[in-house]
Amino acid sequence: MEREQNTSPQLTPEQAQAALRDVEQTRSSYYSELNPWWTTLVFAAFLCGMPLAAFFDVNWTAIAVLGGPLGLGALLWASRRTGPNTELRFGALQYTLLAVGTLVVIGGMASGHFLAPTHGAWVWLPVIVTNGAVALGIDLILRRKARKAA
């Protein structure tokens, strides 16, 4: 096997930094290709759509029942572009974000559902903001992590 390994590289810190930056840019670009911005928008629209519907006294369960499969279908269509075995690895961070995000969304929707009849529809407003923040926050965290060279 041909293999070259140096123990005394001639790189300057600036050159090494440039190489690391190049790697980060490559990983960031690839992550963006696998996760185009509109997939985050789908998540955010779905998560915000439910409390928004409740705020306007529209039955949000319809959005949940219809929006879920539609959104999932859109995401699956996006993922098929990458083909088999190109899914990113799910590590501790991803599982944690998924668990926390799910709890926050469910907690918000449950709070709104129980508080709205007694406190008014305005209780849905912080749920809309929180759900949107969950979708965008998770996306930002994962994009930032994806940029890391290794």
Partner: peptide, 26 residues
């Protein structure tokens, strides 16, 4: 710096490895 690897460091090869490190297969 003992892990420095000329094979990997060459232009484009480092980026190839960076891409492949993200997923199982590309």
């Amino acid at each position: 710096t003992s892990g420095f690897n000329d094979t990997i460091h060459a232009p484009n090869r480092l980026r190839i490895c960076a891409l492949l490190d993200r997923g199982e297969e590309v």
